[in-house]
Design a protein around this nucleic acid. Sequence first.
DNA 1: CATATAATTCAATGAGTATTGAAATATATG
DNA 2: CATATATTTCAATACTCATTGAATTATATG
Lengths: 117, 117
Amino acid sequence: MKNGEILAKLFKTLADPNRARIFDLLLTGTHCNCEIAAITELPMNLISHHLKVLSQMGLITSHRKEDDGRWIYYNADEVQIKRLQGYFLDYFDPKRIQERTPQCPPRAATKKRDEDE
Amino acid sequence: MKNGEILAKLFKTLADPNRARIFDLLLTGTHCNCEIAAITELPMNLISHHLKVLSQMGLITSHRKEDDGRWIYYNADEVQIKRLQGYFLDYFDPKRIQERTPQCPPRAATKKRDEDE
DNA sequence: CATATAATTCAATGAGTATTGAAATATATG
DNA sequence: CATATATTTCAATACTCATTGAATTATATG
């Protein structure tokens, strides 16, 4: 998958406000679904859905609590976030902006006027 | 509007492939609608729609050609792009990730077991 | 003023996806 | 094994928004 495609997927992933908020929360540290539910007041099945999407994007990872497997802990994936940040900065870079004179109107159209005078 | 909300809007704006492509094109320099149409093979009214969304996000600006007002030139807004890039870096920053012990299971639940043994 | 070019606006359609409610799974405990 | 907790999965609905086609606006020119 090309960087551009990965970025498109990243934008799509973070375009949803609830999902962005959940990710924002995980950036501040590990949380389980029920904690996220308590903070955001969203239903757990909806949170579960968003966590899955974030996970498929590679933004977060998860593991069951060792001594009590009922809880699943979610946390931001630092390595992947660094990589994606790099892709974004390469794309969304003011330095990329170039000077350019539009080719419109086309030569054929302007030529006529230029010569007629 | 908070930075988080602005970013969500930015992601939404760039989440559409056609719109991202048009923005990408404008990063390479000023273009008019008809040039974008020639390059992307998209209908001009659709391009017009996407340009409007990009414009409302503040990513691009536009002005009519001085000596022939039929053409409207679109170009990336360097100042705004720099600002948005700043918001992104503040939000999507691996350094923000903190150590955290989930408060789940709650004290009341674990307390019982701790004391019973 | 009539015609042509560039671009936008508007209303309608369609596709993708967030959300909801109900049912199922995984783990722990008495 | 039965019950409780945490979480997920599934099917159905609702909503947003990209896309399409037709009509409209703005500018230029004969």
